[in-house]
Every structure is written in structure tokens, then in C-alpha cells.
Write a protein that binds this DNA or RNA. Structure first.
Lengths: 249, 249
DNA sequence: CGCTACGTTGATCGCACTCAAGTATAGTGG
DNA sequence: CCACTATACTTGAGTGCGATCAACGTAGCG
């Protein structure tokens, strides 16, 4: 047998599309943003957020719309997609619970540059940019944390630029698989399973290539025994070798 | 005649490698960071900076070194270069007076990920990351401004990712030329001149291609009459047409 | 059970990389 | 001021990676 047939991914079914006010409190206090705040301050901030539920494939906002809100992922996964005139889409990032997206500033670009799309059932918390601006002004540590996060993201984006400029499709795919595994990997019978519905299309859009090329590379990697994969799922069975391919840097 | 022989670039010779304490004050108060601060606060911050001069090609810091300082460009241009194991270099950004680089946080990655290199004669102001952290804590508006700048940079990086994923070398070069022109362009007899020594090598490293490919594209663009170019300089003569090529988005 | 979306595989084509010469330009020292 | 050199730039020929087009397998779902 080469690969099992049904998806081994277990989606956490903690009220797929909605999270109670208590869950919200729980989540917000775990968000890097607010870990430095006292309990009652978190409670206060909590009230400023509204919550929304989305099903896989639904869009939270579209590129080109006025950028009015900041969002925090509560449950599930959200992907940020950038479009091209030619119709090609690029996945810039996949966000996990606790991460934020949307707009940070009242001064930034007036429109969303990306589309935010639910990758799984998910629940997000929303706050208007204005309101968040007052939060930033009231709680300076929050601004410092945000600054740190943005630094890390910029660093990641630069790394992506390097990959696209200098590495082959195989190297980029290996690198993306490792990155995702680090983010949402869990040890399973199949190997280090990426807990995310991940199509060839997604992979292609994350690495700036085509579905066909992604498929070829994945087939090759499986034939060599470094990964196991099926429809919408991937598990890594030989991370060390993948690191070598990725060009370990 | 196709193109003039000698470089039309005029380098501002305002004490190429050093800037007096007064020049520094002048510069700091124009830096986006500190425009919101009162005069005497700027003066106070000014004292926390040390200044350094560099000649073209000299490195301010190297990738891999401990990340200890935050820098502000005072005079000249600084490029951020990321290296590859294969020896290929990528230029992530070219910074103009008023822009910062180095490390923002005490918590960020411990090492510089890029090399900062003087593109022209230049003078930079330096502050330790720790000291700057206290500045951020003392002057919350500075943190908010920094946050905005980081947002814009992340946005730019994402745009670069899109370009690399979806656009041809010709499109990417056209886009980079326009971006540079917007940043350091000045209207001259030659056209919209990019006030920066810009080699084919630089151009290639900014667009993730090779010197040869960059050269071919530049020759083509000149033959079509959209640019005029020589050794280390470029002027745009038909921006509208370049926009079209870049795929205007 | 068939429909639809996802995935695989093959054949062909072209853009851009590589390797290799050759030309032009700035800077240097006689 | 001019030869000389180092560096930037150009151009050509050949190659290969990855995109494109096309056909076919396969899993999940109603």
C-alpha cells in the first residue's frame, strides 16, 4: 500500500463556527497581543470584539474593499490570498488561532490588499481599526507586541522572497511543507501530519507554481518515501531529508 | 546618439560620510519616527544616537552577526542584501534618508538576517536595541508610527512575492524601475532619472534574475524608447508605457 | 450510481538560465 | 593626454526547468 485512502485529518469540532463569550475570553488571553494585560483588562478588550463564523471557502473580506477591521483567528484556519490580473492567486500566509489579520492602522492603505478566506470551519473576532487604535494608545505594551509580530512577519516575507528568487519548485515545496508542519503539525500514525486540508492547488499557490508542477513534485517526494499524501492531506515521514532538499537555511 | 556616455547622476556632496550634530538633529526631526515628538524630546533622543560614515560597497553589518542596533539613514542610500548558500544575493530593499533598518526588538531574531551595505557615500545613525526599546516605552506615539511603517513594508514585501510568483522578468524590471523612480527619481534632461548608482547586477538582484537577463531586458526597453540607460544609471522616458508593461496593479 | 472536484501523468513549448566571447567605459599610472 | 587595466555591459548559442495543454484516473458526495 502506498497511501491510505481516507483523510487522516481530524478537525477540532469545538463549536465549528461560533465560540461562546467564555471561549472568546479564553482565546484572547492566549493571543500574544494581550498576554501582557491583566485579567480585567482582557475582559474589557474582549467586549470590544464581535465574533463571526465562516465555513470553508467563505471569504471574510475581499481585496479591494475598504479596510475597516482588524481580525483575530479564534478557531480554525484562515488564508490570505492575493490576486493577479491574470487570475492567478497567491497564498501569502495561513493563519492559526491567536494570529491577527486585516488592517492595523487607520493610516495604512485604505483598501484590503488581500482576500481573507476560511480554510476550515472557523470563528474570528473582529474589531474596528479605530477602536483598536484606541486600544493601542491605552495599552502601550500591546503596541510593542504588535511591533514584534510585524517584524517576524516581515522577516518571513523576506525569506519567501529569497525562496522564490533562488530556489527550485522542489525546494520551495519542501520548505513550505516543513513550515506548515512546524505550525500545525501533529505526530500521527501516518507521520508528522499537517492538520490542515491542503490541496495541490493550495501548495501551488503558496510556492508560486502550477497545480501540475506541485503534483509532480509531491509524487516524486512520495516515491522517494519522504512524505505520505492523499486527497487534501500531507504527512511528513522523513523531515531530515526534506530539510536537505529545502536547502536548510 | 543612443545614450550619453558619462553618468548624469549627481551625488549630493553634503559632507559625504559625516553629518554634524546639527545635521543630525535636522534629520531626526524629519524622520517619520519622531515627527510627532516635541523639539526638546527629539534633542534628547538625538543624544542617544551615534553616527557612522561608510563608503560605497562597505557593509554596515553582516548577516549572521548578533543583531544589536537599530539604524537610521541620515545621508545616502543603504541596500539590504540577503544571501543564498549558492552565493546568489538578493536585494530586499534600498533605503533612503529617514528610513530605519537593523533590529527593532530585543525579542526578535537574535541575528541579522541580512547584510546592510552602503550603496553610496552615506552616514547612518545608530542606537542599541535596548536603548531604543526604552524610547519606545517612553514615547508611545513612536511605537505606533513604527507599527505603521512595518505594515507598509510588509505590504511591499507581499507585493514583491506576488511579482516573483506571477510576473515575467520584463514585468518585474519595469516595476522595480518605476518603484525606484518614485522613491529617488528626479526630472532631468535625460528623463526621469533614478538618482542612484544602479548596475545590471543590482537590478538582477532586486528582481531575482541574472545579470544577462536584466541586460537583455534593459536593451530591449531602450530600443523601444521607454528608458535611457548607461553604465550604472537609468532614466525613464516613457513611464506610462512602463506601467503598462509592469501590469499596472 | 453518476456527478464533480481533485489529482496524476504525458507531450510539447518557451522563457529564462548557463556558458562563452566580445565591446564599451571609468579609472589609473606613465 | 594616452595607453592600460579592471569592471560593467552586451550579445549569441545551447539547454533545461517549469508552464501549458490535454487526457485520464480517483475520491467524495448527493
Amino acid at each position: 500500500m502506498a497511501t491510505r485512502r481516507s483523510t487522516p485529518i481530524k478537525l477540532e469540532n469545538i463549536e465549528p463556527q461560533m465560540c461562546s463569550i467564555h471561549t472568546r475570553y479564553e482565546i484572547l488571553s492566549r493571543v500574544p497581543f494581550f498576554t501582557q494585560l491583566a485579567a480585567k483588562e482582557v475582559a474589557k478588550v474582549n467586549e470590544m470584539f464581535r465574533e463571526y463564523g465562516y465555513k470553508p471557502g467563505e471569504s471574510i473580506y475581499f481585496a479591494g474593499q475598504p479596510a475597516t477591521h482588524l481580525y483575530v483567528v479564534a478557531v480554525g484556519h484562515v488564508k490570505l490570498v492575493r490576486h493577479t490580473l491574470s487570475g492567478q492567486d497567491i497564498v501569502l500566509d495561513v493563519l492559526t488561532p491567536g494570529e491577527f489579520f486585516g488592517t492595523l492602522s487607520v493610516l495604512g492603505s485604505e483598501l484590503y490588499q488581500d482576500t481573507a478566506q476560511a480554510q476550515t470551519d472557523c470563528c474570528v473576532l473582529a474589531i474596528t481599526a479605530d477602536t483598536f487604535q484606541t486600544v493601542l494608545q491605552h495599552y502601550p505594551p500591546v503596541a510593542l507586541t504588535a511591533l514584534n509580530i510585524m517584524s517576524l512577519r516581515l522577516e518571513q516575507a523576506h525569506e519567501t522572497v529569497r525562496q522564490l528568487s533562488a530556489h527550485s519548485v522542489e525546494q520551495r515545496i519542501a520548505a513550505v511543507l516543513l513550515k506548515l508542519a512546524r505550525k500545525v503539525g501533529s505526530q500521527q500514525a501516518e507521520g508528522l501530519l499537517i492538520q490542515l486540508p491542503l490541496s495541490r492547488q493550495d501548495l501551488a499557490q503558496m510556492t508560486g507554481t502550477t497545480v501540475e508542477s506541485a503534483s509532480r513534485v509531491m509524487s516524486q517526494l512520495q516515491k522517494e518515501g519522504f512524505i505520505r499524501t492523499g486527497r487534501q492531506w500531507v504527512a511528513i515521514t522523513n523531515a531530515a531529508e526534506l530539510e536537505l532538499i529545502a536547502g536548510g537555511e
